[in-house]
């Protein structure tokens, strides 16, 4: 399927989850496709990076469920900050990053909530009155936070390889929570660096890299360098100069229009050429933190 086919399934007001972490292995080709679409009023669930910032800049986000938004080597995302500080994004559910994976897991395994201590006694508890507590039915009687299931209408993730049937392989050192995002969603779209035969994927790497099985995925989109400007290690690192340019485009509406015209309102082939082509991206070293 194509990125356009996947995004065409979105409707106004849907809740979407975006895999990856910060500036790492974000499905940016799919995010750019969402920016180009007419869809609006999205609730976005993410370990946020430029995916969140770009969707905020494009006015797509009605509500954000998040633990942080960061570009990693650039600590804060300028577009997200602009959206928050201008009042354009008043509706946020700010939660502990462990609570976020817990909410996805609850949705995945079809329970209404999972208990944890994280969040209790903090502003996360007081500013999110829809999050309830629950008392242990056992002798300890402890009161715990009941992290509600974060049910997603659609999930978007980016991995290294997929086969045609939707088995996905992650070669980077951290799978993040992509499997939980897929498990929590009704429709699951996976972009990948390349579509390979099942035998080629499983034959060339450790079996542990086969993170997504085909029960977790509905659509596979071949999108080489589809995580750029975020990292997809070991293939390529974070494009810091590009993220600096992206950050500067938060200066005002004109700057964002220029960024958008140059990098978003174009097809992916043109995008790749404009950002320096495959050779340049392949030369970006893995990040050192």
């Amino acid at each position: 399927m194509t990125a356009r086919d996947a995004v065409a399934e979105l409707r106004d007001g849907m809740t979407i989850g975006i895999g990856g972490w910060g500036a790492r292995r974000k499905p940016m080709a799919l995010v750019r496709e969402i920016v180009r679409s007419d869809v609006r009023d999205l609730t976005v669930v993410s370990y946020g990076g430029p995916d969140v910032g770009m969707l905020c800049a494009a006015g797509k986000v009605k509500r954000l469920i998040f633990g942080f938004v960061s570009l990693d080597l650039i600590p804060l995302d300028a577009h997200f900050r602009t959206a928050r500080q201008s009042g354009a994004l008043p509706d946020v559910m700010e939660i502990d990053e462990g609570m976020l994976q817990w909410g996805l897991k609850a949705a995945m395994i079809r329970v209404p909530f999972l208990p944890c201590r994280a969040g209790l006694g903090t502003s996360v508890e007081t500013e999110n009155p829809q999050i309830e507590t629950v008392q242990s039915p056992y002798a300890d009687g402890e009161v715990l936070l009941a992290m509600p299931a974060l049910e997603l209408d659609a999930a978007f993730v980016h991995v290294d390889h997929c086969d045609e049937r939707g088995n996905g392989q992650i070669l980077g050192p951290d799978p993040y929570f992509d499997d939980l995002f897929c498990g929590a969603a009704k429709r699951r779209f996976v972009s990948c660096e390349s579509i390979l035969s099942t035998e080629r994927m499983t034959g060339q790497s450790c079996i542990h890299s086969m993170v997504l099985n085909r029960t977790l995925t509905d659509g596979v989109i071949e999108a080489p360098f589809g995580a750029h400007p975020t990292a997809c290690v070991p293939k390529y690192g974070i494009d810091v100069p590009h993220l600096q340019e992206y950050s500067k485009s938060a200066a005002d509406a004109d700057a964002w229009s220029r960024y958008r015209e140059r990098y978003v309102d174009v097809d992916e082939a043109s995008y790749l050429e404009t950002v320096g082509g495959p050779e340049r991206i392949l030369g970006i070293a893995a990040p050192v933190f």
């Binding site: 942080f68 928050r84 500080q85």
Partner: peptide
């Protein structure tokens, strides 16, 4: 919360860490 003067990172894992 509705319109911060300065938006920083977000709580990250601090709620879970501190408890």
């Amino acid at each position: 919360v509705a319109r911060p003067k300065t938006q920083l990172l977000g709580v990250r894992g601090i709620p879970g860490n501190t408890i």
